[in-house]
């Protein structure tokens, strides 16, 4: 029974992005800003730091694949770059002291990096024609703001959840 808790939590985080999209009025701000939710990535990074890095890489791989298949239909993007982001984060947290503030900055850095990678990829396959400047003002800043807000609200519950899970299994 308890073994299922971790997958269950990750599944809930996986669907939370799309649930946010149901609630979020998409023409808010008159469409001038396009914040994208990356709640699953935040959860995954918490998992990598407070639970286990290698498990997080595996989960990133699996759920990244699901994400690609189900939502974006561009196979490979999340599949490959989610584990990469987890890896980078684990290296960064080793160098920097892991407090809530530094972790906050690391996560924002990760999301910015991820957005830029996905932007580059979408540009490459001609799914978007937005140039870099509008991308930064329309997407990157609002996305960072939205996910920063999420971090502030859910950092402590997420950390507690993963630490508890680690105590059970680790």
């Amino acid at each position: 029974m308890k073994k299922g808790l971790l997958p269950l939590l990750m599944i809930a985080l996986f669907y939370s992005d799309s649930i946010f999209m149901i609630f979020f009025p998409e023409n808010a701000f008159d469409g001038a800003y396009i914040p994208a939710p990356h709640f699953f990535i935040i959860g995954l990074l918490f998992m990598s730091v407070f639970y286990d890095r290698n498990a997080a890489i595996k989960y990133g791989f699996l759920f990244g694949f699901l994400f690609d298949l189900f939502y974006t239909e561009l196979l490979g993007a999340y599949l490959f770059f989610l584990p990469l982001i987890v890896y980078i984060t684990s290296k960064l947290t080793k160098w920097l002291q892991s407090t809530f503030i530094t972790f906050f900055i690391i996560i924002l850095f990760d999301i910015a990096l991820f957005e830029m990678i996905v932007y580059g990829l979408n540009l490459l396959v001609q799914r978007t024609e937005v140039s870099f400047e509008p991308f930064v003002s329309m997407r990157l800043y609002p996305t960072l703001a939205l996910n920063a807000l999420y971090y502030i609200l859910f950092a402590i519950p997420l950390r507690n959840a993963f630490q508890k899970l680690k105590n059970i299994f680790g």
């Binding site: 999209m21 939502y71 974006t72």
Partner: peptide, 13 residues
């Protein structure tokens, strides 16, 4: 039932 949360490409399910 879902909308691409990635928001790069307008896909709905």
């Amino acid at each position: 039932i879902a909308r691409n949360p990635d928001r790069w490409y307008d896909l709905i399910t």
